[in-house]
Amino acid sequence: MKIEKEVIFNVNKAKVWELLTNPSITKQYMFGCEVLSNWEVGNTILWKGYTEEGKEVIYVKGEIIECKKGDKVTFTMFDPNMEIEDIPENYLNLTYELIEINNKTLLRLTQGNFATVTQGKKRYEESLKGWEMVIPIMKQIVEH
């Protein structure tokens, strides 16, 4: 149970990298969440947003496993608000890989393995639905 998506953006790789790593841009498509990280291996990554009441919430936390800035990043991810145990076995990996082809960029997104985590089926379905909502917005932001 893995999510694998390939999306072509009609812009160069640098613009897609910016889309994925700039908090003021992620806030526009990732349900109001800013991605916070220095993109160094071993360091944290947080997706921070606010509730309707204005309370700050960390919606996703994890650690950078691999990062080749501008090309590829892999990080672990866990929603601390789910009522499941915060143990390494419940973290998922998400990889963004960027390949530039004729001034366009292919984003290869891989998330999983949902089969190995608690509530895997539910988390898989929610993530799949989330990506289907977010990807068109990502394209719209970066291509206009």
Results as ranks from 00 to 15, higher is better:
34 E>D: 14
35 V>S: 13
35 V>M: 08
36 L>G: 07
36 L>E: 14
37 S>P: 01
38 N>T: 13
38 N>M: 06
38 N>P: 08
40 E>D: 13
40 E>R: 13
41 V>L: 00
41 V>S: 06
42 G>E: 03
42 G>N: 01
43 N>Y: 05
43 N>A: 02
43 N>I: 01
44 T>S: 15
45 I>T: 10
46 L>D: 05
46 L>A: 02
46 L>E: 08
47 W>Q: 08
47 W>S: 02
47 W>M: 10
47 W>A: 04
48 K>S: 14
49 G>S: 08
50 Y>P: 03
51 T>M: 02
52 E>M: 08
52 E>N: 08
52 E>A: 13
54 G>S: 01
54 G>F: 02
54 G>V: 00
54 G>W: 03
55 K>N: 11
57 V>M: 04
57 V>W: 01
60 V>C: 00
60 V>F: 09
60 V>R: 05
61 K>C: 04
61 K>M: 04
62 G>P: 15
62 G>H: 14
64 I>N: 08
64 I>T: 04
64 I>A: 06
65 I>G: 11
66 E>T: 14
66 E>F: 13
67 C>V: 05
67 C>T: 05
69 K>F: 12
69 K>I: 13
69 K>G: 13
70 G>W: 07
70 G>K: 08
70 G>Q: 09
70 G>F: 10
71 D>P: 07
71 D>I: 08
72 K>F: 06
72 K>V: 07
72 K>I: 09
72 K>P: 02
73 V>P: 08
73 V>S: 10
73 V>L: 06
74 T>N: 08
74 T>G: 10
74 T>H: 05
74 T>I: 13
74 T>P: 09
75 F>V: 11
